[in-house]
Amino acid sequence: MRAILNPCLAVIMADIRASLRYPGDILSGLSYFIMMATLIPLGLGADQGELARIAPVMIWIAVMLASLPQMDRLFSRIAKDGVLEQMLISPTPMTMLMLAKIIAAWLIIILPLVLAAPVIGIMFGLALDRLAMMLCFLAIGGLCLVMIGAMAAALVLGSRQSGVFTAIIVLPLSMPVLIFGVAGISALQSGADMAGHMMLLGALTLILLVLSPPVTAAAIRFSEE
């Protein structure tokens, strides 16, 4: 057990430490996230009611688009440096290491966006009285996005133009996340019951939890063959 847990912890710690070395990168990701949301009222007009109505969609699309470029870089550098090769020949199962990688990516990519989401919420006139639930939706949906993104990033390793490919693989697959996530936050807004939405998103997370780490591991193995 320790032979599995320790390397996984080490992978998570290494990723966090590496990202903390350049905090500016996280900051620029956040600025991108907020700037994207700023563009909409400028184009749509400042009608508060209208803005509040589209706010859930805006937040989700901003999360998706802001995380995508970072997801794409998830493996490209460590593939070139040979770190992935060492992961593959580790006695620890690659699937577990990839799960650790996904958790680290969630902490580094998604968590800052989730924490910044209330800012967009305020800008769009969202009612913030059920803020904790909204962040919960974003956090769980964000985990789904990372798991889809990890699969895509691993599949495109070594291809000619990985950025575009990651996007066209990720976007159709993340449609359900968008649908359930937006519905959930909209339900929160109107004060409707949202337990059902949360359960659907949770079910999706579980399916991806089973699917994503082994697929990511297999795709990386293929890329190193």
Partner: peptide, 9 residues
């Protein structure tokens, strides 16, 4: 192989 994996996903 990646493409076939994508088909399964």
């Amino acid at each position: 192989k990646p493409a076939c994996l994508l088909l399964l996903v």
